[in-house]
Design a protein around this nucleic acid. Sequence first.
DNA 1: ATGCCCGTTGATAACGTTTGCCGAAATGCA
DNA 2: TGCATTTCGGCAAACGTTATCAACGGGCAT
Lengths: 356, 356
Amino acid sequence: MTLRDVARASGCSVATVSRVLAGTRPVGADTARRVRAAAEKLGYRPNHAARALRGRATGTVGLVLPQITNPFYPALVRELTHALHAEGRAVLLADCDDDPVAEAEYIDDLLARRVDALLVIPADERRSRDAVAAAAAQVPLVLMDRDCGPGVADSVAVDNSAGMALVLGHLAATGRRRVWFVGADGTASTAAERRAAYAAGAAALDEGAAGRIALGDFSVAWGRAAVDLVWEARPDALVCANDLIAVGALQRLRELGADVPGDVAVTGFDDIPMAALAAPGITTVRQPVPELAAEATRLLNHRLAGDDGPQRAVRLAPDLVVRESSAPRSTARGDGQHARAASGRATEVPVPRQVP
Amino acid sequence: MTLRDVARASGCSVATVSRVLAGTRPVGADTARRVRAAAEKLGYRPNHAARALRGRATGTVGLVLPQITNPFYPALVRELTHALHAEGRAVLLADCDDDPVAEAEYIDDLLARRVDALLVIPADERRSRDAVAAAAAQVPLVLMDRDCGPGVADSVAVDNSAGMALVLGHLAATGRRRVWFVGADGTASTAAERRAAYAAGAAALDEGAAGRIALGDFSVAWGRAAVDLVWEARPDALVCANDLIAVGALQRLRELGADVPGDVAVTGFDDIPMAALAAPGITTVRQPVPELAAEATRLLNHRLAGDDGPQRAVRLAPDLVVRESSAPRSTARGDGQHARAASGRATEVPVPRQVP
DNA sequence: ATGCCCGTTGATAACGTTTGCCGAAATGCA
DNA sequence: TGCATTTCGGCAAACGTTATCAACGGGCAT
């Protein structure tokens, strides 16, 4: 099952067989036919290890995640693996369990395994920086979803500001004024970006809205706790920084006997599967997951093809998915109406990009 | 950054360096120290490709999934990758999108990449069989979660019969009699096992219960549809074959104005995150995910160590997690009480195993 | 003192590919 | 026909490891 065997069976040299199979150089038509027939008959499969050793490319991409159990990531992993497999690449998966130290080890291991490139969703904006920067110096690396400080590597993510603007616009249009933001103060860049976008846009709703911010983490438990903190202020809308928070808020509001959306609207971010399945369905910002994956692999391929132009930060426009949790009145069930917002259209900003 | 460099820097031969670093043969104490120092200083990392080529082991395991977006799998993937990484192995991930043809291709690709072993959750009990059997002939292979016909490979899964028995026992104890099973007729082995276990155990509840079976697929949509099918029969409990079905059923029941658990109890299977977060929380059978992963890697390691004993089918005992959806009366919120059911204790049955 | 053994080390041959280089044959052109 | 040029195929050298084999030297027994 090696080139030698195919060479013997087809009566020519290993070099010729290699050329036929790789198509690197023109080869006589009948020779090529004989070789292909022999390879087929013997069921020859090239040895990736040998190829990697000789050619210094493994056909492998490392995918480093903070938490595969975060319900937003499975869909992203799915799209990424499909896109990469379609190009003949395999995906080495590493779940670092939200620990930047483990993350650094995994990145190191993947580099030692000679991945051709890395896709990284950094666990921590600050503490992931060094490991990511070091890795980016060795192989093409694209950051996804979260950022990692300016100038570290190419990155692809949703436009968090645009998403938050969609939410605030929707709430304004449906007459909500006493709005609170339930966010996260963690070190993931998404937390800061969404919070900043809220603060920037909320002033248009109500004088005090920009200041009505409660910060915890991206969890259901925090969503529940946040309701207890802000409930006595009688908000008419809770803008949650992601869907998990929204799910928790919804739970707690139900327990308190609040009417959603009658008394208070609740919105999320990401559009994880649970957002559609909660009762009431959660109005949220849908990340264009397939486009994110496509954009990331496109960027990776450019780099692998030798493009060493300036770093890029691609931001994709999200959709607003309106469901019952923010309806003005009771609405028929369904997957909601999507605010057409040029979904998935890419905006590319130079690095360092200015957050307006 | 190769052995040659380390050899030069430490003033000895590549052979010696290799021996020091691999620890395959005793080496003089001071030589070893010099070598280690040099390796450290130069930041030497062994080249996995070369090692794989020479030693015919890549330190890599392939993980083939039917659907990473199925909410039960992320937790399993997490545990598996952690366990394997802890042993110094890397994980090649393949998501075949529930398509046995794609699955066969992925398996083929992983074999061509010379994975040391495979972990497979087969997409289809029948149509995955050939590809899995062929792969199992080449490398150690452990089936997980779902089976693939008798005698194909080692397998690790939850004891579906025991889980269903826990559910039925709980419903019996809380006085439910007009029970319906909402299951799946798909080709995943779990569908058949759970259905058979229900049919076997339901007779103890009520004369007709064993026959009250509605079959669709493992989806939220089917759960909703099933309620419309069985609702006029006024069931007092719906035993759903997995949590997604239960979520759908719960949604539809709420829309119909039914009181859960007052009018009707609903139970699920798997204990996906959504089960705890639904309102009311869903009583379900918790799969011992960490134990499943540990058992699978243990089996794999045995095979990799050369054990060629008879095939094994490990079945782990699940827990019952009682939540509000099956409470006799209204209950305080919480994560439910767990019926202690010797969770995770392994039962090993010879293959082919008899389903009683 | 000679021979032997053991502990340590080095040289070297693989592993399966790709590729630069060269020779041979075939073709084009004069 | 002779020479230049192209086309095609083979040889052999890498890529970085590990394993085999032999060599070398010192200690020990005879």
